[in-house]
């Protein structure tokens, strides 16, 4: 069986700087993969290349066997990829319900189907503030809203860019729990992360990127055992 998402030789530029120099790895069905590395290593750019927010990426990005590199973001999203950006980007003038409406897409075979009510079961806080504008929410609540908004598109694969960045440790714990629930629903997740404690508690596999190249690709257990790789690429 082919992987759900497969990258091969992906190159990408940010403005005039080349960020990715031939990235290749895959995410299997139902798998949680942590894309790790320092700041500036290319994690966010990889995520953006998958969802189509990087102009003119080179190389191959396949989702369920279909080539998606160079397609427009909306077309990629409609194939079943949900993207949660690192800086949350909730629509601050729109209410919680309106934020969810923007993310709404038709039901998709083979992916969990989400409604606002189901999402409020997962994020009870959001259910209590349906008419509150996104701008009047705390950072943790916004992070929940941005995930809920993406789930409204009924994705098969969720891209989570630095979900723990800037959040208080208690919120990070709740985030880890949420990701476990989503995995239980059958969703595949690719998350970028610098925090090994957080990634280690939820990911099946770790992929380490450095200077735009993949340096490590193995199970999370293997990374935990490999002190050399950890100190060389993650500096922990």
């Amino acid at each position: 069986m082919t992987a759900l998402l497969e990258l091969a030789g992906v190159e990408a530029w940010y403005g005039r700087a080349k960020i990715l120099h031939g990235v290749g790895f895959s995410v299997g069905h139902g798998e949680v993969v942590a894309l790790m590395g320092r700041n500036g290593a290319g994690k966010s750019t990889t995520m953006k290349a998958v969802i189509g927010l990087v102009p003119e990426p080179q190389g191959s990005i396949r989702f369920e066997g279909k080539e998606i590199a160079g397609r427009e973001p909306f077309a990629i999203a409609r194939l079943g990829i949900g993207y949660v950006p690192e800086d949350r980007r909730v629509f601050s003038d729109l209410t919680v319900m309106e934020n969810l409406e923007v993310g709404r897409q038709p039901a998709r075979a083979g992916a969990p189907h989400w409604t606002p009510e189901r999402l409020f079961d997962l994020f009870p806080n959001l259910g209590r503030m349906r008419d509150r504008p996104g701008g009047a929410m705390s950072g943790g609540e916004q992070q929940m809203l941005t995930i809920a908004r993406t789930l409204m598109g009924n994705p098969r694969l969720l891209l989570l860019d630095e979900p723990s960045e800037g959040l208080a440790p208690v919120i990070v714990e709740a985030m880890a729990q949420t990701i476990r629930v989503l995995k239980g629903e059958g969703l595949s997740v690719l998350l970028s992360e610098q925090n090994l404690h957080f990634a280690g508690s939820i990911a099946d596999r770790a992929v380490i990127i450095e200077k735009g190249l993949i340096r490590f690709d193995d199970t999370m257990a293997a990374l935990k055992a490999d002190e050399a790789a950890r100190s060389q690429y993650l500096a922990v």
């Binding site: 208080a168 440790p169 208690v170 404690h197």
Partner: peptide, 12 residues
Amino acid sequence: AVYLGSGVTSGG
């Protein structure tokens, strides 16, 4: 309670 949590995800 309000901030640090149990420490599992933040380095123990």
